[in-house]
Every structure is written in C-alpha cells, then in structure tokens.
Amino acid sequence: MSATTAAVPFWRAAGMTYIGYSNICAALVRSCLKEPFKSEAASREKVHFSVAKWADGKQEKPTVRTDSDE
C-alpha cells in the first residue's frame, strides 16, 4: 500500500492520467502470466484507432494509434 501511495505524485507530475497509470500496471500484470493464458490476454490488449483533431471546423490530419505490427 505504501508503495502505491508514494508513487501517486510522481506519475501525476509526469502528466499521466490515472487511466494511463492503471494501463501500465495492467500490462505488467498481464506480462506476468504463463502460457497459454499470456497469449490469450495479449489478444485482449490490441489497440487500433485513428484520432483526428479539429480546429475551426476543419479536420486535421488523423493519427493512427495502433500496436499491431504491419
């Protein structure tokens, strides 16, 4: 408990949100799994989407967030 309490200000200061923090923790836990559970869990952490910001009613160039290697 004390370790997490101590960690909080640091990741907050690094500009991370709680979601980012918990995601990293979750990835760590998943990487500790043994096969065949590991690959099963890995299939559940695929990220793929494309984000586009808008400014003055115009769409800017979309960026694709993906972790699948192509």
């Binding site: 949100t17 979601i19 980012g20 918990s22 995601n23 979750a26 990835a27 559940r44 952490e45 695929k46 990220v47 793929h48 989407f49 494309s50 984000v51 586009a52 910001k53 808008w54 003055d56 009613g57 115009k58 769409q59 979309p62 694709v64 967030r65 699948s68």
Partner: peptide, 28 residues
Amino acid sequence: SKKSIEMTITELQKNPINYTQIAVLADD
C-alpha cells in the same frame, strides 16, 4: 456543427472492442 467538433475517432471496431483500447482512447 463542424465548428464545435473537437475530436473525431474512427476505426475503433477493427479489432473487437477491449478495455485496453478504450482506456488508451479515454486517456487521449
């Protein structure tokens, strides 16, 4: 109402939706 659009996200459903993906998106 294109003036009020701040962000658009597409291609979300290429893989089956999972929490990791949505969490990264929510973070963004």
